[in-house]
């Protein structure tokens, strides 16, 4: 148990849309799906509301990883917001790589309202990957 306490506990921010992934998280709760407490959710109505600056700000404010979640392609409550998210994600991925961020620190996942198990799995997997990467150097370094 001591090992667990000493283990690096990454802080991960997940931006989730109101209609799909937030509901998946609620459903995970109802199903009492256990997952690590490292991921904290911020709800927006649509993943398309997530300004790339929010992602950068999250890293700046101490996040070790950022998870973007929305409805599956064709399933967006607002028709096409998730496609905008996908484009912004691609841009962010490139930018972050140029800034020296490891790829696993930013992740995009489509998780529908019914996919509570996928939500749990993604959270667990993301936590483990970011744990392996260790603290974000730009935060810890100076």
């Amino acid at each position: 148990m001591m090992m667990q306490v000493d283990e690096f506990q990454p802080r991960i921010v997940a931006f989730v849309c109101n209609w799909c992934t937030y509901i998946a998280a609620d459903t995970a709760g109802v199903a009492r799906a256990r997952y690590s407490p490292n991921v904290r959710l911020i709800r927006t109505m649509c993943s398309g509301r997530v300004d790339p600056q929010f992602v950068l700000a999250a890293f700046e404010k101490g996040a070790d990883g950022v998870l973007l979640c929305g409805c599956h392609p064709r399933d967006c409550h607002y028709n096409s917001g998730n496609y905008k998210t996908l484009r912004r994600y691609t841009l962010l991925k490139t930018m972050l790589a140029q800034m020296g961020f490891e790829g696993d620190r930013l992740r995009l996942e489509w998780i529908s309202a019914s996919e509570a198990e996928k939500f749990r799995r993604v959270v667990e997997d993301m936590t483990e990957r970011v744990r392996k990467l260790g603290p974000l150097k730009s935060n810890g370094g100076n």
Partner: peptide, 10 residues
């Protein structure tokens, strides 16, 4: 407007 916020982020 339905309040998705896509324009806001852009």
């Amino acid at each position: 407007c339905k309040g998705c916020g896509v324009c806001v982020a852009a």
